[in-house]
Amino acid sequence: MTATATRRRRFSVGKGFAWAYLIGVLVVTIFPFYWILRTALSDNYALSAHPASPLPVGFTWGPFKRVLGLATTQESIAEGGSGASIEIGHFLVNSVVYASVSTALIVFFSTLAAYAFSRLHWRGRDFMFSLFLTALMVPGILTLLPNFVLVKELGLLNTFAGMILPGALFSAFNIFFLRQFMLGLSTETEEAALLDGAGRLRVLFGITLPMSSGPIITLSILGFIGMWNDYFWPLLVTSDDSVQPLTLALAVFKQSSPQSQPDWAGLMAATLVAALPMLALFMVFGRRIVNSIGFSGIK
């Protein structure tokens, strides 16, 4: 009796520590997001006077106006800005095009290849599959520079084609991931359809593809997040803001801020603007994203 009671009490003390730890982790995780918002709604001069205030100081929409280019250069400089702004709508479109086209193409082409590797019988299949898998061993840094040279030679610098093409056709991981899933899928329905005289393509698009929608969505979500946040590759192949994505626009905006006395409020407003689309996506697909990440590790 007493032994059980003691153990239970010790256990709940442990549980208390665990909760404290978890809350600590959550605070550290969330706090920077709050701090972005708090700073973005503050006035630069008030900020330097009250840097520790937990609430916005000298509340103003000025930083957002500066970032979105709604304030004149004089107004911007008077508030501690640099006069630079981010044409948010324009860069948003660039990011959406880059991330969604890349993701759609790579997932689609990977699905086709995965079907060929998991359902069709053909000479050379095993060899081709092993060949594809070798690409997993090659780190990005080795192919990035030569790929830059190639894109430049093709005259595709500063074009969406140049940004998207190198990553749109082939992904060893996607093919592998989908093939594994398809191999584990029951083929009964597909075989019945084939016996009924349905063509291979019809089976692929009508049966296999819908049945694989789980992993396809997982890969799409993870791919989209990765592409949306991509910085290094666009940095290499774009110098013109007609195609640059939002991540680059933020970096450029940050560089334009005076180094000695940065426009902190403006910078945080820009950061929020850059992070907002992903946060919105999270509000809508949160559960799906969390499950996708867990799923990708287990498979």
């Binding site: 069709l120 082939f170 291979r200």
Partner: peptide, 30 residues
């Protein structure tokens, strides 16, 4: 599985081009 081979090569064609042009070639070139 008659006719599988032809279809298979069509299906992996985009991936194969991507592999050759943007993975294998840049590696060797690097």
């Amino acid at each position: 599985h008659r006719g599988d081979a032809k279809l298979a090569w069509v299906l992996i064609a985009p991936a194969l081009v991507g592999f050759a042009v943007f993975a294998a070639y840049p590696t060797l070139r690097g």
